[in-house]
Amino acid sequence: MRILIVEDDRNTREFIERALKEAGYTVDTAANGRDGLFLATTETFDLLLLDRMLPQVEGLTIVRTLRASKIMTPVLILSALGDVDDRVAGLRAGGDDYLVKPFAWSELLARVEALLRRQDSGAGGGESTFLRVADLELDRLKRSVRRGARRIELQPKEYQLLEYLMRHTDQVVTRTMLLEGVWDYHFDPKTNVIDVHVSNLRHKIDHDGERSLIHTVRGVGYRLGLAD
């Protein structure tokens, strides 16, 4: 997986570069918008990380230029501008996700992984109507959930939460990602709001004696999957 980072601030750039390299990605960097645009149009990447405010060519301009020339590489926009209208502007320009600076290492990795996976599954011909993790099954047509022989009744939001977690099986999802993905509101959730919802869901999914599927990733968020 090859990722291009376009970021003018050296500290941030090196931080992201190290984080991604440690996670096993191949990383290229550019320190200004012009170089970034040049690299993004002449070489092939699996993901672009774009700072919004860049010298020479602005981040959103790069996205628009890429999309106009039919380069559909997923773009994660990084910005110090975190308000709703800024985010909307970023996504409207063609960005796939928007991460507000300052961000934590884990939040960045979770989102990078989510974007790359989406790319993968997108190539595989759309999302399936049937999600399965171990003996947990979710039927999106019937909106029903079973674990083995046990039928699980879920509240609508719990269902959406589970669906989101299962679509991101074995990935770390952060609380902010859950609030965005399930509730469609964009800002950092307060205190333990999301935790309570996940905990309720976990009570219904993971009964005593069953292998637990919903794991808490300390300080980061959650992961649904078999491995601990």
């Binding site: 601030d9 500290n11 941030t12 931080f15 190290r18 984080a19 440690e22 110090a80 600076k101 300052p102 934590a104 290492w105």
Partner: peptide, 21 residues
């Protein structure tokens, strides 16, 4: 101000984050 004050905080956060990993 926001930019100037955030920057050192962010730098500290990045270092700590790296160390913590």
């Amino acid at each position: 101000l926001a930019h100037d004050l955030r920057r050192p905080l962010q730098a500290a956060q990045i270092r700590l984050d790296e160390l913590a990993h």
